[in-house]
Amino acid sequence: MTNHDAVLRARVLMLDEGRIGPVHELRALRVLAPVAPAAYLPKLSMALVEYAKARTGPERLALLAEAVDAAERMDRTDPVRAAVLLKALDASQEQLDAAGRRSDALAARARMLEVARAGGR
Rank of each mutant, 00 (worst) to 15 (best):
A83W: 02
K43E: 14
E25R: 14
A52W: 07
G21I: 02
L89C: 04
A54L: 14
L86W: 01
A52L: 09
R60N: 05
R101W: 06
L64S: 03
A105I: 06
R73G: 11
E114Y: 06
E25K: 13
L64H: 04
T77Y: 01
A65K: 10
L61M: 05
Q93C: 12
A118C: 07
A39H: 07
A6V: 01
D5K: 13
G100C: 07
H4L: 15
D69H: 12
R60W: 10
D75A: 14
R27V: 04
A65G: 15
L113P: 02
M46G: 05
A82C: 09
G57E: 13
L48A: 09
A82V: 03
K87V: 13
P22R: 09
L15R: 03
S103L: 14
R11M: 13
L26S: 04
G100S: 07
Q93P: 06
I20R: 02
V84M: 09
L63K: 00
L15D: 09
R30N: 11
V68M: 11
A82Q: 15
E72C: 12
D75V: 04
E25W: 00
G119I: 08
R11F: 06
A91K: 00
L89A: 07
P22C: 03
K43L: 15
L61W: 01
L85S: 10
E72F: 06
T77S: 11
A39C: 05
H4A: 14
A65H: 05
E50A: 14
L89N: 01
V68T: 13
A88H: 02
A33Q: 09
L26N: 00
V23S: 11
E114Q: 15
M46N: 10
D75T: 05
E72R: 15
L8G: 02
V49N: 00
